[in-house]
Amino acid sequence: MFIYHDSQDIPFMFEAGQLHGIFGVSGAGKTTWMRKMAGLDAQTRGGRYQNLAAASAVAYLAQTPHLLPHRTIRAQSVWVSDALRTERWAQALDLTDVLDYFPHRLSGGQYQRAALLRVLATERRVLLLDEPLSQVEESLRHHIFRGLMQYLADNPQRLVIFSSHQWADLWLYAHSVSFVDLGQPLPPRPLPSAFSDPPNWRIARLLGYVASVSDGSGGYWLLHPDAVVLGPHPELGLVLSGQARAVSGPGDVVRQWQFHSDTPRVALAWSDQAARRPREPGPLVITIASPPHVTYPMEG
């Protein structure tokens, strides 16, 4: 267990041997927070780790990394780690072929992976990665995240924390997630349960919730398009009746369905797909399967 106390002495507990995510909109303060955790920006008040000196145990990957232009990828990685670990991680990151290139010859995605290589090869106890794979294509990203998970499984005393503004990355690979809201990070919570209990409407919106319905006694149900099931199924969740409208794209092919409920008045939209395709536009009854029950309505 790694425990980090922030500047207000709030403890953030991270289970060792796991991959943790930091999630928030662009500009929410993810980078500021990660720099603090890396012990950077000494002028702003940072936090501290319990039983851990940041200077010797934490490695940090910047969101827009700077590889040295005058050294090869291999040279600069070996300089901060060693030849063996550089080779091993280069394989995991699919960089073996370009290891002896200078950075200016790399593509955007390769550059980002080369910067990640330099950090991973240090194999420090805590790896802080700020949007590490934002420019890497989907299949390779999957491969690399799998590699990180395997590394943690083999090294249960290590910790990897990464930030992303793409919920899918966290959903697929993170054990827990810290939401960063209005510059303030919230202590990590395990996934997938963190998804069904967003702490406020801004984060709920970020997670894809589009509307809320009052339960009549001060609480609210959150509606997510992915939870829509056609037809009345009161045993599954919340039943809504209203009007469905087909939205066509080029070629007059239906691309999307928009639904407006009668009471209460809320709107939902979902892509056209066989499982959730109404027979025709017009009156429709849908069910929102297991909607989260929260204390706030959706705004904004």
């Binding site: 950077l40 200077a55 490695a59 940090y60 910047a62 700077h66 300089w79 240090t122 420090r124």
Partner: peptide
């Protein structure tokens, strides 16, 4: 020379 070049290697223990 952006200070980031130096900072990113300092934080890796150099």
């Amino acid at each position: 020379i952006s200070p980031a070049y130096e900072e990113e290697l300092r934080v890796l223990g150099k």
